[in-house]
């Protein structure tokens, strides 16, 4: 039984890359409202979603993540003007690469969460967990190159 599980069933491990200014603050907002949600997502804070190097995402799969979320400021709201657009573009390209390696697109989600959107953060996170639960464990770890 893995540490995260209480039932012995499959508990997805998800890494969330959250930008400091909007989505990380949005996650804090959910916390401030003390709204309970499943503890399957471990957050790695970056200053900007534009900092999320695709190799971080590959690294997460390699290290055991069943899914990865990249959360950014809404279009037009990026603290660094346009880092979220860069992140969006990279995500689109990465999905194609992941598909070639048999990693389903549901395992890599890009979305926007503002600093005010605690509820939206929880909604996206819950959807992600449900989607990964449906897909099952990732099981491709061995074929990824060493990172």
């Amino acid at each position: 039984m893995s540490e995260g599980s209480t039932t012995g069933g499959f508990e997805p491990k998800i890494v969330g890359f959250l930008c400091n200014w909007c989505s990380y603050a949005g996650a804090d907002k959910a916390g401030g409202a003390q709204k309970s949600y499943p503890p399957n997502v471990n957050v790695v804070r970056v200053m900007c979603s534009g900092r999320v190097d695709p190799q971080f995402i590959l690294k997460a799969y390699k290290a055991g993540a069943d899914g990865v979320m990249i959360m950014a400021c809404h279009p037009g709201d990026c603290h660094y003007k346009e880092g979220n657009y860069k992140a969006l573009a990279r995500h689109r390209i990465l999905l194609r690469v992941l598909a070639e390696h048999g990693i389903e697109s549901d395992r890599c989600r890009f979305d926007y969460v503002s600093a005010a959107e605690g509820d939206r953060f929880i909604k996206i996170l819950t959807e992600m967990i449900d989607a990964i639960r449906a897909l099952g464990p990732i099981g491709i770890r061995m074929i990824l190159p060493k990172i």
């Binding site: 995260g4 916390g31 503890p39 471990n42």
Partner: peptide, 26 residues
């Protein structure tokens, strides 16, 4: 961040502790 992103948002103490430990390892 084990307050806003763990303690305040996780109903099960056991699972909250596991998550906190994972984040601290990171």
């Amino acid at each position: 961040n084990i307050r806003e992103q763990v303690a305040w948002v996780t109903s099960d103490v056991g699972r909250a502790s596991v998550k906190a430990a994972a984040l601290i390892r990171g």
